[in-house]
């Protein structure tokens, strides 16, 4: 069942469309990723979902609520972690949690949250003295303190080291396991692949693809990559003519062919016909990175 429905969302700033007809829905209990290059409209989209911005056009419903007309009710259902928004510098972790807990009728127990988030030894520390990772964890705690049904996390792990990122991912999974729907804005492919049930790729204010991470990878041209060292000469032209092949490259005697599974089978047959062998053969799926680059236009030369 969909807990978030977005249909035909449009938003322009100063005549320039930032979100240009975005539609998607998020199921209850899902981790839904919104992925895309900088300036693609990701943040504006989730701001419209969280009631922080008023869309120019389109229909948004979160748990049946209109984020603009029923904003008050929405704030009790949605918890957010926003980019570039802090708490008062001299507020301690504990005071920030108590303050935000007071805004809700049935808040979560902040002691459990700090325990789970590994902030228990920092509850007396002022916000200004926290490290980047500790701040992020505090923001997650503040997003969860009202026991929301949906949390929106905007660039959650930006600025975290790999360990901090992994810990945060585990936390997000636990949040989802507790029944909360998660909307995750990110530009880390690895993060989307690891966490998300489904991913919407946004580019230039539009959704260019919406699928599971595995589905996205498969959808991109050249989703399978094989590489090998042929035991004898093998014309590149013949490889490029194989069914589904999108790219052939040769470096230091090693040939790399991008294509589909069909390409791999055809290449093996070709090698066999020529009486050659494929040394040091490797066959891999392309990463979500490759899919991302293939499916977004933004950074193409």
């Amino acid at each position: 069942m969909a807990i978030i429905e977005v249909a035909g969302l449009r938003k322009a700033y100063g005549g320039r469309p930032v979100v240009d007809g975005v539609s998607f829905s998020v199921d209850d209990g899902e981790i839904f990723g919104i992925l895309g290059p900088n300036g693609a409209g990701k943040t504006t989209t989730v701001e419209c979902v969280s009631g922080l911005r008023v869309a120019d056009e389109g229909r948004v419903r979160v748990a049946g609520l209109d984020p603009v007309a029923e904003r008050e009710a929405l704030t009790r259902v949605v918890g957010v972690q926003l980019q570039r928004s802090e708490v008062q510098e001299k507020l301690t972790v504990r005071e920030a949690l108590e303050l935000y807990a007071a805004f809700y009728e049935r808040p979560a127990d902040w002691r459990e949250l700090v325990e789970e988030l590994g902030l228990a030894d920092r509850i007396g520390a002022r916000f200004g003295k926290l490290s980047g990772g500790q701040r992020q964890r505090l923001f997650i705690a503040l997003a969860l303190i009202g026991r929301p049904r949906v949390v929106v996390l905007d660039e959650l792990t930006t600025g975290l080291d790999p360990r901090g990122r992994r810990n945060t991912w585990r936390l997000i999974e636990r949040v989802r396991d507790s029944g909360v729907t998660v909307v995750l804005v990110t530009h880390f492919m690895e993060e989307a692949r690891h966490l998300c049930d489904r991913v919407a790729l946004i580019d230039g204010g539009r959704i260019t693809a919406l699928d599971t991470p595995v589905g996205l990878i498969g959808r991109a041209a050249g989703s399978t990559v094989m590489s090998f060292v042929p035991s004898g000469p093998l014309p590149e032209g013949e490889l490029a003519a194989l069914p589904g092949a999108t790219d052939v490259a040769r470096k230091d005697g090693r040939v790399t062919v991008r294509g589909s599974e069909e390409t791999v089978n055809a290449a093996m047959a070709l090698i066999a016909r020529r009486g050659l062998t494929a040394g040091r053969l490797r066959v891999e799926s392309a990463s979500l990175d490759d899919a991302y680059l293939d499916l977004t236009e933004g950074d193409r030369p």
Binding site: S50, G51, L82, S85, E86, Q88, F103, L142
Partner: peptide
């Protein structure tokens, strides 16, 4: 400063 640091904005996403 509260506005610049997004403190007011964060607060506007709560029932307060």
């Amino acid at each position: 400063g509260y506005r610049e640091r997004g403190i007011l904005r964060r607060l506007s996403a709560t029932p307060a």
